[in-house]
Design a protein around this nucleic acid. Structure first.
Lengths: 355, 355
DNA sequence: TTGAAAGCGGTACCAG
DNA sequence: CTGGTACCGCTTTCAA
């Protein structure tokens, strides 16, 4: 039988309360008694109050839940996600809180169950598509929830995000100013749980993820503003947010007869894959074909990738703080982070017959 | 007031047990009653049984704890660690269990507290040095613990690991066969919590981490077997397991007057950094200087890095299975995984005056 | 400074 | 198929 508070109390000849105090409120008893209690505990192999029982009593789980699809692989593969998690963990550490990673099973019922069974004080919804069953289950828990979409539809939702539309509108203006109009967008736009990946994506309304949808809107607005035809934009949906996916998607774009003059990736990892595709074809980025990304991960600088910078770690940190210490006012509950267009060598004037 | 089981029971006019059964054992009550209960729950905004309370009653936390130092950054940065975690999460998912990431605070007392307060069913000790205070605290919890050291000193400890000594003995033989004897070892060998990072490392006994210690032993044995002088081996301790650390460490080795003919990294990320250092000096890997790594992460193949392959994801998966379903027999509690020397272009004959 | 008592929200056995 | 009844292990007033 594992020792409990009672075991120790009996051993020392005091009450449970006193033993509890020895651990949680050292100032409530004499140092000698405390020492005696701790000694006895050590002797009995008692490792301290049971965390679960303590959580139940205190009404605080001591962890925040982070949901992941694809057995975590996405989360760990994208340097942006990694930085975000680092920020989140920073906030968690500050509040003596753990991070509970919850792998979301593919099955919808199992996914809901996973959410319902998570002993957490709040959830961070990171890259979970809006219609996903797990998302609904999270809202039902009635716990604080933080996301990265500044304009999330649910009013209860906390958010640490950037103005995606404005960010890509600027990025788009950069491209149109360089004379690009026949371009291809490459991104992981469709969530598999919501429908077949072959669904054609014509515009923002077909995109599963809110962030990506807004990014597309920004580019659309830039095209409008420049008086360009959105139909000249090819939208290529790829499976997954990864360098390999970017390579595939870019290959599909580059091997068309009317090769686009620029490739727009919705993340840097995808953009990096696009650069790989260019290289494989002997094409020079920023000269033959322009490439633009999103995030500004460290590798983007090395690769000379033009991209939109967003503060990844800070985003995570603020998301964590929002969750662990929710502001009282509605305004404080949505924090907007800045973005910046970082122009590097991968974008240049459009090389186009018509120019 | 948040609704509880009782609230729902009262609403429907049944007992708590029945409501509990409606969630946990659907076969214990009529479908109609169950529907009525679930309906009422929905109406009242009851999201299902409180996970903490359930855990307490069931005696199962539903999560395994994974300890991390350095606010998780190490864990997320090394592709090997990422794969390991993926494997771990795979096992966790199979057992409907979450992964609780526990950032270990620098302060020893806080670290112990973090371990004691974790509501978990077991711990996975991944890259936590042997003398680390958190490690002691883990053992005290009396929960199952899995590590990656096959020859861990604690008999209770479960393990999914490789024969590090044999692996590097083979790798070392490869190098000595190529004529290398004046080499440099580059690795993150000293744990900061255990003493200053400037402590000189002369041999295996000075290394903080068991795995690294054994890797060094393997190389030492290869040197002995080849009749070479271990004193010709320079040991360079770097801070952290990262590409940057590898770059730094290699720089220190390459800029010496008696430049080593080969660089031995204890991880591929460090080896990749070493390749960066070579490149920066116009040196060709495998021609001017040889480089060998450990792990065989995907980037190793791209970089043409000779390395020791170990099954990262499988290691994590097995660690998870061991933890969640500990074998009864002592033999089954330590699983040995295979390693393989993968020879690529980064190693070649020693370029040495004396050869 | 110490202790008694009342839960925190459930689960599971067992009787009906 | 349903309900009564003990707990799970701890924290926290409140009195002594």
């Amino acid at each position: 039988m594992k020792p409990t508070l009672q075991t120790v109390a009996d051993e020392v000849g005091v009450s449970r309360s006193t033993v509890s105090n020895a651990y949680g409120r050292p100032d409530q008893l004499s140092p000698e008694l405390r020492e005696r209690i701790l000694d006895a505990a050590r002797r009995l192999g008692y490792a301290g109050p049971n965390p679960t029982a303590r959580s139940l009593r205190r009404g605080r789980a001591g962890a925040i839940g982070v949901l992941f699809t694809d057995v975590l692989s996405y989360a760990f593969k994208d340097p942006f996600a990694v930085r975000f998690l680092q920020g989140l963990s920073l906030a968690a550490e500050r509040h003596s809180t753990g991070l509970l990673l919850i792998p979301i099973p593919d099955d919808a019922d199992a996914a809901r169950a996973a959410v319902r069974n998570a002993a957490v004080d709040g959830f961070c919804v990171f890259c979970v598509a809006e219609g996903h069953p797990a998302r609904q289950a999270i809202l039902e828990r009635g716990l604080p929830v933080v996301g990265t979409e500044l304009h999330a539809t649910d009013p209860e939702m906390l958010a640490a995000g950037v103005d995606e539309v404005a960010a890509t509108r600027t990025a788009g203006a950069h491209l149109t100013a360089l004379g690009h109009h026949r371009v291809a967008i490459i991104a992981d736009l469709l969530h598999p749980a919501l429908g077949p990946l072959t669904t054609p994506v014509r515009g923002p309304e077909d995109v599963s993820y809110q962030g990506d949808r807004e990014r597309m809107r920004g580019y659309q607005q830039a095209w409008e503003k420049a008086g360009l035809d959105w139909d000249e934009v090819t939208i290529i949906n790829v499976a997954g947010n990864s360098r390999e996916a970017g390579l595939d998607g870019a290959a599909r774009a580059l091997d068309r007869r009317d090769r686009p003059t620029a490739l727009i990736a919705f993340s840097d990892v995808i953009a990096l894959g696009a650069l790989d595709a260019l290289r494989a074809r002997g094409l020079r980025a920023g000269r033959d074909v322009s490439v633009i990304g999103f995030d500004d991960i460290p590798q983007a600088a090395e690769a000379g990738l033009t991209t939109v910078r967003q503060p990844a770690k800070e985003k995570g940190r603020i998301a964590g703080e929002l969750l662990l210490d929710p502001p009282a006012t509605a305004e404080g509950r949505r924090v907007a982070l800045p973005t910046e267009l970082i122009v590097r060598a991968s974008t240049g004037p459009a090389l186009d017959g018509r120019n």
